[in-house]
Simulated assay, not measured.
Amino acid sequence: MQLPPVFIDISPEDQAQELRSYLKGLGAEISEEKSAKGIEDDLHKIIGVCDACFREGQESEVESVLNDIVSIMVLVPMERAENIILAFCEKLTKAPGQKLLLASLRALWLLFQSLDERSPMRYHVYYHLIQIAKQTDQVKSVFRDIDHLKQQFASCPPSSEQLQKLYRLLHEVLLKSNQSEQAAKVMIELLGTYTAENASHAREDAIRCIVSALADPSTFLLDPLLSLKPVRFLEGELIHDLLSIFVSDNLQSYLNFYQNHKEFVTSQGLNHEQNMQKMRLLSFMQLAETNPEISFDTIQKELQIGADEVEAFLIEVLKTRLVRARMDQAARKVYTSSTMHRTFGTAQWQQLRDLLCSWKGNLQAVQEGMKTITAAQLELLNQQ
């Protein structure tokens, strides 16, 4: 079946008539005649049967048809285009098969980029883009990171409810594509959309955020979660107790919790062995904060590992770059030079302030030294 020619330099009405003829030729129940009610009614009817091209068209042909529809759609005044755009998005999310979904993804991306940045419809198109990205495992082609997402909607920010809906979908899609770090960041953004007035309604989102952060093997700074309003509403519940252990307690505290609440940990979809590994890393960070020199025996005891496992564990620690250290196998010790803090409170701010003041003092000393050297050189030149 031949695709209609590329529609260039013809009116939207004639372009719509060409699409009608093409779709009718594919067996769609549509008249070839233009609508007497105008281009918007033409679009409604064309979009209603545009999935006919999915049945017989090749990927390139389908994409061409969809792009033609987009080229007409963007000419409709925005206040009258809402239902047309939503109907088009719904049709494209139901495209059968990977190749046709990819063609639909590209057509929707074209629509998203073609809409005015101030258009509230960009949110709806983007949401459907993520839905198709979920089906095609193409989320990286749509979503870069949270900052980029915010830039996309800077001129017309979605409502809190719309953002919550989008973030929930994004979290699900990112987890599916093994982007756990990005998924955790999205969940934190989701909880940040709640206010003190509605934080109590965010229980499920808060639990999902905590579980996502605990399960993510690359997320170790968990302290900020405790300050989120929806998380604070969980105080007294087991999930909050578990989070608090990961924030500031040691491995033994986790083991005690697990011994008493095995079914709860499992019911949250958390893996005990992975929890153990993460708590060992966190416990070692805690040791390193106050002990620049740690013996292998202390590590073995505190982290409950065998003597032959200590070196392998330390190698894993160094790979995370959470701690800077060097091993002395002969002395059976590890010397730490710096570590990421598990919590960042008043003491850590004071330590940072002291460090910056020290740097400032050193720079001033260098500056004064340079002035002295410069003055001496100038004096020597004058004498010559």
Rank of each mutant, 00 (worst) to 15 (best):
N362M: 14
P12L: 07
D147G: 12
A28D: 08
I315S: 12
N291G: 00
L163M: 15
P4G: 11
I10E: 09
Y127A: 00
T343K: 07
E368M: 14
Q252G: 08
L314E: 03
I305A: 07
E90Y: 07
A95R: 05
I299S: 02
K371F: 10
L355S: 15
R20V: 04
D14G: 10
E32F: 04
F257I: 07
F246H: 00
Q252Y: 09
I46T: 05
F284R: 02
S177L: 06
Q162C: 06
Q17L: 14
A376Q: 15
E82M: 10
Y127N: 03
L381K: 11
Q384W: 09
I8Y: 14
V62F: 03
K37M: 09
E13Y: 09
A28W: 03
F112L: 01
P120A: 01
H201I: 14
L322V: 04
A196L: 10
L169Q: 01
K333V: 11
E56T: 12
D297A: 15
L356V: 15
A312W: 00
A202L: 03
N271G: 06
E289I: 05
S159R: 11
Q252V: 14
G269Q: 07
L318I: 13
K150Q: 10
I299V: 06
L226R: 09
K165V: 10
E311S: 12
Q152M: 14
Y194W: 02
L3I: 15
A199C: 12
G306K: 04
P230C: 05
